[in-house]
């Protein structure tokens, strides 16, 4: 009987249960959270400084800047693009706001207008990126790489030394706490919820996946291709601008080397979280996992007093292993 069975079909196919389907569809997300649990669990057992509540909150706080940037980066990567200018956008927003604060003698009344100015700057820079990419049909990676270089020059022209004169009440934004939970962690959590709902529930959010999957199909489905792309770059730059404003509040000075390396780290977080770098596939939940993994790894490295030079080596190794481990969905 077994022989006749095997002659028709090599493997008996069990009916997939709800659970196995769920696991198969979310394999990368489950994997990343399992790795996070593993890292945190090992560290908590072996190092008593790690398992203090203040340190665990620290991990969340350390992940805020990269987390905010990674929200925007995920949106752009979902469309099949990449934004290498996020770090410089965050930096130029921080420097501009700091310069105006300094020129206004740290007037606390300027806080709200300047936050708005930062958001407007983010919007305009994102629109510029998006329009340049859609109108010239050029490669997004290299266009934003070039824009980043231009912004780097402009940033150094604004200031080559840290700018002082941020009003004290602006610094409280970062330190503000509700109970024991820092407000900035709440803001980040709120942003993630909004981003998750945006990508799963709204028309434009779903269009991101279609655009990243196939331009042709997206257009045949009456999705406005160019508009969706421009919106994704605008959202990306806005989230970078918010990160820049938070960073200014954290450091307390307009730092001309702020957010260094964040552009690549955000892409690493996105890739770790399982969003396909070819676009069209993945979830914001995965990216959040990638961000938390990066933050907890860096926290563990610091507690174990790993040399800063080896940290970069390990980061590079993690990136190479991650990208080599997943295969492009198109070939599968």
């Amino acid at each position: 009987m077994a022989v006749t069975y095997q002659s028709t079909r090599d493997h008996p196919m069990p009916r997939p249960s709800q659970w196995s389907k769920f696991f198969r569809n979310n394999a990368s997300i489950i994997l990343i959270y399992a790795i996070i649990l593993l890292v945190i669990g090992t560290a908590a057992i072996s190092n008593e400084n790690f398992r203090t509540p203040s340190n665990l909150l620290n991990i969340l706080r350390q992940s805020i800047i990269i987390g905010l940037i990674a929200i925007g980066q995920s949106i752009v990567v979902l469309t099949g693009g990449m934004d290498m200018s996020v770090a410089q956008v965050a930096r130029i927003v921080g420097l501009t706001v700091a310069t105006i604060f300094a020129a206004q003698d740290s007037n606390p009344a300027m806080i709200l207008p300047l936050i708005l100015l930062g958001l407007v700057m983010g919007t305009l820079l994102g629109a510029f990126n998006g329009l340049l990419i859609t109108r010239t049909h050029a490669n997004p990676f290299i266009i934003t790489f070039g824009i980043a270089s231009i912004l780097r020059g402009v940033n150094l022209a604004i200031s080559t030394t840290p700018i002082r004169g941020i009003p004290a009440s602006y610094l409280h934004i970062y330190d503000f706490k509700i109970g024991i939970i820092p407000a900035n962690v709440l803001v980040m959590a709120l942003m993630w919820v909004i981003a998750y709902l945006f990508t799963t529930r709204t028309r434009t959010g779903r269009a991101l996946f279609a655009v990243g999957g196939s331009e042709r199909v997206a257009q045949l489905s009456a999705i406005r291709y160019n508009r969706t792309l421009v919106i994704s770059y605008i959202l990306c730059s806005i989230s970078a601008a918010i990160a820049g404003l938070f960073l200014l509040s954290r450091t307390g000075v307009g730092d001309p080397s702020a957010a260094e390396g964040m552009d690549f780290q955000s892409i690493v977080a996105v890739a770790l979280g399982g969003i396909s770098l070819y676009g069209g596939k993945g979830s914001m939940v995965g990216t959040l996992g990638g961000v938390l993994l990066l933050a907890s790894l860096s926290n563990v490295f610091n507690l174990l007093q790993v040399n800063i030079y080896y940290q970069q080596l390990l980061l590079g190794l993690i990136v190479l292993v991650t990208v080599a481990a997943y295969k492009s969905p198109r070939s599968a």
């Binding site: 050029a138 290299i142 824009i147 780097r152 020059g153």
Partner: peptide
């Protein structure tokens, strides 16, 4: 530092 801006500008225009 205007060299950075110059490099970026050339790259963006060329691309």
């Amino acid at each position: 530092h205007w060299q950075y801006a110059m490099q970026g500008f050339v790259l963006v225009v060329a691309v």
